[in-house]
């Protein structure tokens, strides 16, 4: 049979030790091993370690950035707190100052008002006095003139006499 010959060939060529095959396999092993070692493993391991170092660097810088951000935030928070306190202080001072100023102003205004009132009263009193005096002088004049007239005409009249008395009495006050 034909395929039995083929099987015979297969077994014969496969089973017989052959120095050419041995050398070929040794060389193949050696060559492929070296090719794999220098062309595949070395550059690939370099690539991987390069990537690893890049990733580690990135992680490190990210960590640093995070730390910096945290400390900055802390600083800002402290600053903000301080600013708030400062602002409150300023507002408080302003308020108290304003209050003080207000009270002062009210005080002054009251004082001035009182002064002006006093002054006005004084003036009024003075004026009154003056007017009273003027009036008295005037009345005296009138009284004199009236007296003159009465003297000249009917001084005996009881009614008039009474009037003059009253008049003088009033003026005399």
């Amino acid at each position: 049979m034909d395929f039995l010959d083929k099987i015979n060939d297969l077994v014969q060529s496969g089973l017989m030790p052959n120095p050419i095959t041995l050398i070929a396999q040794l060389l193949a092993t050696f060559i492929i091993f070296l090719a794999f070692k220098h062309w595949v493993w070395k550059p690939m391991n370099e690539l991987i370690s390069k990537r690893q170092s890049v990733i580690i660097d990135e992680l490190e810088s990210a960590r640093q950035a995070k730390e910096e951000a945290a400390s900055l935030r802390n600083e800002y928070e402290v600053n903000l707190e301080e600013a708030k306190i400062e602002a409150n202080k300023i507002i408080d001072t302003a308020k108290s100052q304003a209050l003080e100023t207000k009270e002062q102003m009210i005080d002054e205004a009251e004082k001035e008002a009182a002064y002006k009132l006093e002054k006005a009263e004084k003036e009024i009193a003075l004026e009154r006095k003056k007017m009273q005096e003027e009036l008295r002088a005037h009345l005296v004049d009138i009284a004199f003139s009236a007296a003159e007239k009465l003297v000249n005409e009917n001084i005996d009249d009881d009614k008039n006499r009474k009037l003059i008395d009253q008049f003088i009495e009033e003026v005399g006050e």
Partner: peptide, 20 residues
């Protein structure tokens, strides 16, 4: 004798070296 296996070895070696 150069058995046919040697041819296969050479082909595979060439392919793998070129691939590498």
């Amino acid at each position: 004798e150069i058995v046919p296996h040697v041819i296969s070895i050479i082909v595979i070696t060439l392919v793998l070296v070129i691939l590498a």
